[in-house]
Design a protein around this nucleic acid. Structure first.
Lengths: 222, 222
DNA sequence: ACTGTTTATGTACTAAATACACTAAGTGAT
DNA sequence: ATCACTTAGTGTATTTAGTACATAAACAGT
């Protein structure tokens, strides 16, 4: 059933850089392409935007399809539209990035097995299309936003220690942070609170557990 | 000559919020639509992306067509894609915003007369499509970027006084700034330099004229 | 030469960010 | 039970950045 237009139309896709923390590392979700072009290569999850679907809805749908999870922080990143970025036809990609709490998807991503994988950023495979460029921009945006928002909390599980939260900042910002100053700064934002519980895990003083006060809101500082 | 696809494709446009300073005010360029839909209403300049043209090229082309000028600061803003934002068909709009030095386009914009106009932000007409929303986001981005970049210099003519530059910041930021602190801050960035000339215009001490050191670069502070 | 108007400029104060070291609480070995 | 080891938890002093603020200089017009 062909669709006709008076002048040529591009196809439009959404591609998503989905980040989470697993095993003390920031990871991104990649899928192995089953079809040409770039068959067998790794790519960002994504797909065509339905003709009656908003861009955000398309991104949420892809997110759900790949991770089985609804809730996550999702933000439009940039739109990539070089004429030959897809060898088949003109394809314009609206890129999004998403942050998932590490405890929301443990099961699903493990069971998915073939064709989907979480990758450390220092062990990325070659990526299809211009996805390396897209992922690079997503990482830059993420790092920049750490500095002036509470976006990092979107990566945290229901309960976490101050050291774990600091570790995220260190991973994304690629710099060591002073534990005392970090704690002061975060607590001053009034966005996390102690659960009252402790986590004991080893031959040392147990760590206080914290939770995010309002999961649904990302605050902007300064 | 019809173009056929196996599944429906959206149309893709670029729309540009073009800002400049005229008559001591920040103004945006709007065009009066000659065709349906929204015929006779004001809209952001824009148009369809050619099938072999990059998004940035399309934005630059529109910019040139409307203002007759090449050089300007141009940045992708956001992509708007609600399914019914255009009554004709599904249209996805990649929005850009541009900053023009006030002296680069005096002639052209004046001669253009009917159908094109520079509007103060507090005297905007009703806008076609979702262009009010797009313009609103462009203004937000502009205001935010004033704080951490030297983007405002892109609006300045070849020579300008410190007071004029400060006035831009006050217009966009909607707050009065201290002349001494402002001057210190800007000079510390090392992005403008005195021309050596003065401007005398009235019964008072003449103002030093400055020029932008490197027109082509926008620096990011902090 | 006096008045009015805008430009140019330095210093004191306040707030924010940074550097830095010791005690607390647990585990495991002797 | 004590000791050694490990990570968590916390306060203060210093530095840096940002803010508040007032007076003299240069010109035009009378």
């Amino acid at each position: 059933m062909p669709f006709q237009y008076d002048y040529p139309h591009p196809a439009v896709t959404v591609d998503i850089s989905i980040f989470t923390i697993r095993g003390d590392e920031l990871k991104v979700l990649l899928v192995k392409r089953a079809l040409a072009p770039f068959r067998g290569e790794w790519a960002l999850p994504g797909g065509f935007v339905d003709i009656d679907e908003s861009l955000t809805d398309a991104a949420m749908r892809e997110l759900r399809e790949e991770t089985g999870v609804e809730a996550a922080y999702l933000e439009q990143l940039y739109t990539f539209g070089e004429p030959r970025r897809d060898p088949r036809e003109r394809v314009i990609s609206v890129a999004y990035y998403a942050l998932m709490a590490s405890d929301t998807l443990e099961i699903r991503a493990a069971s998915d097995a073939e064709g989907v994988g979480w990758f450390r950023l220092d062990e990325l495979p070659a990526l299809a299309f211009d996805h390396a460029e897209i992922l690079d921009m997503a990482l830059q945006r993420l790092a920049a936003k750490l500095g002036y928002s509470t976006i990092a909390l979107q990566l945290m599980p229901a309960e976490f220690t101050m050291a774990e939260l600091r570790h995220i900042y260190e991973l994304i910002g690629r710099e060591q942070l002073d534990a005392r100053n970090f704690s002061k700064r975060i607590l001053a934002l009034d966005v996390i609170e102690p659960t009252g519980k402790n986590r004991r895990d080893g031959a040392h003083r147990p760590a206080k557990l914290f939770r995010v006060k309002d999961r649904s809101s990302v605050k902007f500082t300064r």
